[in-house]
Amino acid sequence: MIEFASTFIVSAIQILLMLLATPLVCGIIRKTKARLQNRRGATIFQPYLDLSKLMRKEVIIPSTSSWIFRITPYVVLASMLLIALLVPTIFAPVPFHWMGDIITIIYLFAAARFFLALGGLDAGSAFGGLGSSREMSIASIVEPAMMLAVFTTAVTAGSTDLSIIVNRLSTTQASIIHPSHVLAFAGLFIVTIAETGRLPVDNPGTHLELTMIHEAMILEYSGRYLAFLELASQMKLLIFLSLLANMFAPVGMAIDTAPLSLIVGVAAFILKVAILAIVVALVETANAKLRLFRVPELLMVAFVLSLLALILYSIIGS
């Protein structure tokens, strides 16, 4: 019973932490980008204000749509929250780690994407279909690279369970300098850019029909539904940054529940994610949006990096 309660409490903390930190990461990226572009930019807390405003607005539902349109925001957000329960952030193992491994996480992302794309098609507008089509096409070439990158760490740890991977690697300490991990990290970083719709793959700040992908799918959403979808997409970014931070550099990760190690864990997590967020902002500032059919070339780079990582592991071993 106590075990059950502690599982519940720890999971609730984890999910609340992710929910609270999510808009902040987005705020940090926007602020950094603004400063890099010589603008002052809005405060890093602006995403919170945006979301709370959206929550209070009226929802407009297209008369052409079916119940798929209405259920999509909930399914997408729930999938992200479920993934947030499975990804180690400040401590490993997370209480629900036995529930799903890294393959499950990748396919939960796919489930969210599946519904998001259906939501885009449901209103019957031209833009929705355009967004869905592009999203699904890019996702299909991202997936192999992502699978190989995460499998590189999985074979090192001898498990696909994310908490076990993180635990193993934090105890051996040698992980980050292993050449195959460096390659896999680079591969997964490109995957992160593509999966979370950042520049140069997709521009999160535009509504120009020639370039939009994610924004086109959610074009017909408004009010609370839009808030959920925005929150979900920001959370996806945080999840990917946590994966990058903790799978390859589990430094400072709490492996017990002593208060001190938890404090160190929180500090290390915030630091690592903040650094990665700033790197993302730098990449976004330094690169222009790629033409849609140039994106596969970039993703091919990620794929080759990840494949090399796994092959290198096979050759030189751990």
Partner: peptide
């Protein structure tokens, strides 16, 4: 190895 699992019912 170190074990890996999935629990679809729980999911």
């Amino acid at each position: 190895g170190a074990g890996s699992g999935v629990s679809p019912l729980m999911l």
